[in-house]
Design a protein around this nucleic acid. Structure first.
Ligand SMILES: [Mn+2]
Ligand SMILES: [Mn+2]
Ligand SMILES: [Mn+2]
Ligand SMILES: [Mn+2]
Lengths: 232, 232
DNA sequence: TATAAAAGTTAGTCTAATCTAACTAATTAA
DNA sequence: TTAATTAGTTAGATTAGACTAACTTTTATA
């Protein structure tokens, strides 16, 4: 049985080596800053996780997940996202409240409980932030998507997810009136300070990279963004 | 913020000094055996809880809860019983499965979460084992009830709760076909070995004190057992 | 009331998870 | 290719929660 702490390390490793585009290993310092602990602490724990065959690691080398480690980490994320969905759908929490609560709930271990919860929720594909929910085998479809920052002037896109899960960010998104699946028109891009003028539901907003870097979008014309042939 | 361990001590103290009839304090050894740790461990922790003003305690004396300690412990029990009810009512778990899962879930702290869950469940009064659920202020109505062992030959009673929450016991109750609110007729009491013959739904069963000590009943004739004037 | 038994305490040890401070290896840039 | 910077390691300390073994106080009993 894994401890809360071990689970949090594995979860962070999934985020840094699987969800992060084009990276399948990570260094001690980066993992440490992600978990808000010191590198010395990570060094200890990584050696412990290696003994348990959850990570691959050699002294002065990079850290990567073994298949077992990957699955364990993915299960933590599955639990996190299913609980977020439960809180949002059934208990009427707002999307900026659920993440914090799910940080605790994700460590409830029972497989049976989480599978029953999944069923109770009707096997949702996405959590309230637009993130895909890993299935019972730890498999996940990471859909094609880009950040709003990567879109060009004149593009018409659709918001599919948010990157930042913090209350401050999510409340700002709420304030602007933006909801998952909404259409966004990029009206202006100022190269000098990277401010972007967007139109949502007919209303203009000027937003900064702090915002656009954390909004995931797909082309609004061809929703099957994988085969997208639009300029986008 | 209380740790899991501290919460478990407070919960055990509520059970031993409030739910246990006519006792408002408890010794180190009894608390230790209830928590399955050694007396030395309890001694350490009780001194820590005293510093936090959660218990009253003097060296070589008995332990009792302060009002704050009582409320904290009661909140753990409220969460435990509400989660049990959720698992039983919404996720179709059986009554012998829910206790173990609730042992983990009871440590999720958010007040807002538990109050929303309470609302979602329609403010239930009792958990799947027939135990009353403390309200948002930590108040609880401990209804009048006796064990089946205390009933006499010829009594007609109604099962309102079970004392033992273990899987083994609850599955035995299931096997006999007994359900909360069922009527039980005490047909025979053998003084020699304390075996009791009962009738449930027209079927006879011979049961031992291991069973009857853990079944809570009220008189079936006058359901307001508090004012019961039947022999019972 | 003296003494044996039960209840409770203390000192010292252990493990998990963290830290700091000092060190070493690897990478980058002059 | 050497020096500086960055990344990673090690040793030693701390804290919470547990333990054992030895001790002390309280209570029960002869
Ligand atoms: Mn989240
Ligand atoms: Mn999420
Ligand atoms: Mn229970
Ligand atoms: Mn219960």
């Amino acid at each position: 049985m894994l401890s809360f702490t071990e689970e949090n390390y594995l979860k962070a490793l999934v985020q840094l080596t699987i969800f992060e585009e084009g990276k399948d290993e990570v260094g001690v310092n980066k993992l440490a800053s992600c978990l808000e602990v010191k590198p010395a602490t990570v060094n200890d724990m990584v050696r412990k996780l290696k003994v348990k065959s959850l990570v691959s690691y050699e002294k002065y080398g990079k850290i990567s997940l073994t298949p077992i480690g990957r699955n364990s980490g993915m299960m933590v994320i599955r639990r996190h996202r299913l609980w977020e969905t439960f809180l949002y759908e059934k208990l009427d929490f707002s999307w900026d409240e659920v993440h914090e609560l799910a940080e605790e709930l994700e460590h409830i271990h029972s497989q049976k409980l989480i599978n029953r919860l999944d069923q109770f929720l009707g096997f949702p594909e996405f959590d309230p932030h637009g993130d895909a929910i890993p299935n019972v085998d730890g498999e996940i479809v990471i859909p094609f998507r880009k950040t709003l920052s990567e879109s060009g002037k004149g593009d018409i896109v659709k918001i599919v997810a948010v990157k930042d899960n913090s209350t401050a960010f999510l409340q700002y998104v709420d304030k602007i009136g933006l909801v998952i699946q909404d259409e966004i028109i990029i009206e202006e891009k100022e190269e000098f300070d990277s401010l972007i003028t967007i139109k949502i539901k007919g209303k203009q907003h000027v937003v900064s990279p702090r915002f656009t870097d954390n909004i995931f979008v797909v082309c609004a014309k061809c929703l099957k963004a994988n085969d997208c042939s639009c300029k986008y």
